[in-house]
Amino acid sequence: MWNPEVYLAYADHRGRPFYDLTSRVAATDPRRVVDLGCGPGNLTQTLATRWPGATIEAWDSSPEMVAAARERGVAAGVGDVREWTPLPDTDIVISNATLQWVPEHRELIVRWATELAPGAWVAFQVPGNFDAPSHRAVRDLAAQPRWAELLQDFPFRSAEVVESPQDYAGLLRDAGCTTDAWETTYVHELTGEHPVLDWIHGTALRPVRSALGDAQWEQFREELAPLLAEAYPQRSDGTTFFPFRRIFVVAQVGQRR
């Protein structure tokens, strides 16, 4: 289960990559804009403001997130991005911080590029921080004997969850697209007693939470908190710097040969 309230705790920080991504999509009058992995819909809403003449289509695999999006007036549906196919009038496909959850997403983005009409856009952003101290701490703790059997299906076992910007650019260039790929490391200034733990609670730790009972979950959090505090020490002014690398790709489908 996804918890929209937990996810939105850092809405401003999480929203900035979405705006940086969509600002590079140069479409002026798209007919249909699709948000795959729309989450609670707070960012999807902005697409209707950016392109008021477009039909906005939104998908998410979480019923809880879809319910939150619908409360905001977003016409979202429950669905797996792997099963989505574009309608003929689809001009823009956006996926923000979703494809890292899909092991076969490399093949998926190539399929989208071949199914979309020439001139259509594919834009996605994925975290590139799977080798960061936060994720290493979770992996190391999950590998301890007392947790290993319970967490054997933890999905982020290595740093190779996503590709580099140049590898994604190569995949889409080979699929006939022009590409714009880059990476950015945001330095988030967080506050609170356990700010990094609170941040990853709503995302990376979700599979851990779903695999553990309440008492086990509290114990795991208690063991993880000092590891994260050591990796991300609090400054004397009460803030904690949390560097977060993200990978961006914007591609436009070319003419078929």
Rank of each mutant, 00 (worst) to 15 (best):
M1V: 11
V6R: 10
D12K: 13
H13T: 07
H13Y: 07
R14C: 05
G15F: 13
P17R: 12
P17E: 12
R24A: 14
V25H: 13
V25R: 09
V25T: 11
T28F: 03
D29W: 10
P30E: 14
P30A: 09
R31V: 06
L36M: 08
G37H: 02
G39C: 07
N42Y: 05
Q45K: 15
L47N: 01
T49N: 05
R50Y: 08
R50D: 04
R50N: 05
W51E: 02
P52L: 08
P52F: 12
G53K: 14
A54F: 06
S62D: 01
P63C: 06
A67P: 05
A69I: 11
A76D: 10
V78Q: 06
V78M: 05
G79N: 03
G79V: 05
R82P: 00
E83R: 07
E83V: 00
T85A: 15
L87H: 14
P88S: 10
P88A: 09
D89M: 07
D89Q: 14
T90N: 10
D91S: 14
D91R: 08
I92C: 14
I94K: 01
S95L: 08
S95Y: 05
T98V: 09
L99N: 01
L99T: 00
L99G: 00
Q100C: 01
W101D: 00
E107I: 00
L108I: 01
I109Q: 00
W112P: 01
T114N: 15
L116F: 03
P118A: 13
G119I: 03
Q125K: 02
P127K: 09
G128R: 09
F130W: 04
A132S: 15
A132C: 11
H135Q: 14
R136K: 15
V138A: 13
V138I: 15
A142Y: 06
A142V: 05
W147V: 08
W147G: 10
L150C: 11
L151V: 03
L151Q: 03
D153E: 14
P155W: 00
R157A: 07
S158R: 00
A159G: 13
A159F: 00
E160A: 01
V162I: 11
E163C: 08
S164M: 09
S164C: 04
A169T: 02
G170K: 09
D174M: 04
D174C: 07
A175S: 13
G176T: 14
E183T: 12
T185V: 14
T191R: 15
G192Y: 06
H194V: 04
H194D: 15
P195T: 08
V196S: 07
W199P: 10
H201M: 08
G202N: 11
A204C: 07
L205H: 02
P207Q: 06
P207L: 01
V208F: 07
S210E: 10
A215M: 09
E218F: 03
E218C: 04
Q219D: 13
E222W: 10
E223T: 06
L224S: 09
P226L: 05
P226K: 04
L227Y: 12
L228K: 04
E230C: 11
S236G: 10
R246A: 02
I247N: 07
V250G: 04
V250K: 06
V253Q: 08
V253R: 15
R256P: 03
